[in-house]
Design a protein around this nucleic acid. Structure first.
Lengths: 224, 224, 224, 224
DNA sequence: CATGAATGAGTTTTCATTCAT
DNA sequence: CATGAATGAAAACTCATTCAT
């Protein structure tokens, strides 16, 4: 065991190794602090090869962002079965989200922490990703409102704000779950689902939102 | 005859000028991209003086973080009148929070964007701030639960998760309000209060949380 | 059915293609700025083949210099018919020289601009070429002096200086002719022949040197 | 004697030292081969100081070109007394030119060899200098033609060519004089003056142009 | 022979930081 | 104290050159 000095690999493979290393370093050190030397060393290649394949530090960082963003959205998309009611879809999406961020903490750090902090090439890419997610969530909320047949026209800006709030809460909980020993993705998802769907008021009245029993009885939650 | 070139100011004043400049530069350019030259120039002092007073770039950044963190917590604390019911106190805290972040965007950027991104000296300082706020919010939630006299012992971890979610939502909305033309601090606070207190479920049933009418009639919200 | 992709050519041909490419790139970009990648690509061969045949960038550049130097001297030599009087031989040599530099601007740039600029391996090669040409011109001058039967022993150093001056003027006019729209090789040669043979003094007295009418009537010149 | 470790010098002085070093290195090694490390070391300062004062390698090279160009034109201008007949003015200009190039071989190399070889920022600067000199010489020739009262309208292009030829010859002789032991500036100037003014034809007839006897009797030349 | 994979060694450039005056 | 002079250390990036297949 242990990486034998593997030389002469096809370009596609090497590129993935470089991206793996870059995501790790960028996620932990930040864009500016990360050095191309470090990344090349961690990837097990020489610096010129990194430049040959990825062109520049900026391009490398962009490639990381795009790869991790694609992986995250794909994970969430794959986790949501269409055809279910809105609350179920949200629940599944959250589970997928927390599972993914738990398994890819460095990638999550790149997207959530690092990419937003640095200048224009990157901020826009993250904005696009975030807008996509907020739009997705917002759609779910609007759909749910339609299902509830009351107040069918939630004001646009309000809904946008709600989407922002929900996504922000999710981001925050992802960090918290990663940092707190013993918090699973399911628990994080359930906490957020309760918070968002039932609201603090209901929660305190003992009326939480209930995760689907079929999958897993009473996962966890605030219920008695 | 105002002092065109104010010289020989007391140290405390000069330090504040430097911190003002530093917060602005750090908030806009980021920690690594900011240069001490820029900061000294903007502060209107010589670089060696910056070093004399603040020792190093790291110390300067830490001082910024501490000052902005103190200002933010103080603003929130000052905005909350004790003795009111928990939901009112949360409402007031949120209003104060969004008002402060709207008035100090650079300071908010330092705390929320820059400080988290860079290595260990700073992350802990931000963690402390965040823990303090989360604890504050968590206390409010626990108190409210006690008031509601139902399910008096919300599990600790659950409550922590709720606090995290609420704070995360607030952070996200602060950015959103700062970036979106025409969104006031009150609107942001109301949106979040509705989201958190009533929950999406209640909102969609047409039962929003209502901001106190005494202060300001029907600010905004999802109600008809 | 021409060979769309000509492979397996004899070594000598391939080498010439590489030298063609190298002369073009070196002449336009300069020695240091030119990259072996560019040259290999323009030559339509793989980089390792370039190294196999030409060994190194230095050797490649030297080979370019030698080939272009040989081509230039050969062109001049071939343009001069022996047995004619000295002024006619000089005239023919100049015509051949300006014709060649006009047809091979990249090769001329390599010899005149690039090779002199870079360190020792190359400077000597150019020096050799230049000495050869200066010697040729100097011989012509000495011969002409002998023909004139006056002052038969022009001091050696003086004659050397005259050769240098004539060659320098030719180099300068070659650049000028290449850069100036509408100046032909004949015109350049006539200008220089007038300048050198008749001298400014005679020119201004209206006594130019006259190009041989048999070849081409009154090409151009300062004559009325 | 020897440079004592002189520290803390005023900026203007240090800048000249840096330019001195840069001219030497650039003149001998060429623009691309010269390294900023070498230049800084020769100047006796650290590299950052070079960048602080001269901004970049390109700017440094440009500064060298401008300084040396100004010095050369100034030397020639100062050497020519107005009011004399054209041939005398040319003679004095040439003497000043060869004297200057002999005393500043590195500066001359920068102007004549290095600056022409490298890309667009520099080529234009040199072109401007050269055009200025060619125009100066051309004017002299035209003036002389007017004085001679024959053929008063030498065709423009012809005269331009003559100026180019004369300047090219001068450049070439400057290199030759610098490379050849025992050739003085006066000798170089006289050789060129003879060549240009009297022409090879007259020279071989034993009718050289004669340098002004008042200054220095029969300097050298082809005269018997 | 042809080619894609790979790199050692160097280059320009920047910045936080410190003295001497 | 204020200021201009000065630098150590490191970072991004490039290129000629070589193997393994």
């Amino acid at each position: 065991m242990g990486a034998v000095k593997t030389r002469r690999m096809p370009r596609a493979v090497r590129e993935q190794q470089m991206l793996d290393a870059a995501v790790q370093i960028f996620g932990r050190r930040g864009y500016m602090t990360a050095s191309m030397d470090e990344i090349a060393e961690l990837a097990g290649v020489s610096k010129p090869l990194v430049y040959l394949y990825l062109n520049s530090k900026e391009d490398l960082f962009s490639a990381c962002i795009r790869r991790e963003a694609a992986a995250l959205t794909e994970a969430v998309r794959a986790g949501v079965r269409p055809g279910l009611p809105a609350d179920r879809r949200l629940w599944e999406g959250l589970r997928a989200f927390f599972t993914h961020t738990a398994h890819h903490p460095d990638g999550w750090a790149v997207l959530h922490l690092q990419a937003r902090t640095h200048g224009e090439p990157f901020a826009s890419e993250i904005d696009a990703l975030r807008k996509e997610i907020v739009a997705f969530v917002t759609l779910l909320i609007a759909e749910a409102a339609r299902d509830a047949r009351r107040d069918p026209d939630l004001p646009e800006r309000e809904v946008a704000g709600l989407g922002e709030a929900l996504v922000g809460a999710a981001e925050s909980l992802a960090d918290w779950a990663n940092a707190t020993e013993g918090v699973t993705a399911r628990q994080a998802a359930a906490t957020l689902m309760n918070f968002a769907w039932a609201g603090l008021g209901d929660l305190m009245e003992g009326r939480p939102w209930t995760p689907p029993a079929a999958e897993d009885r009473q996962v966890q939650g605030l219920s008695s």
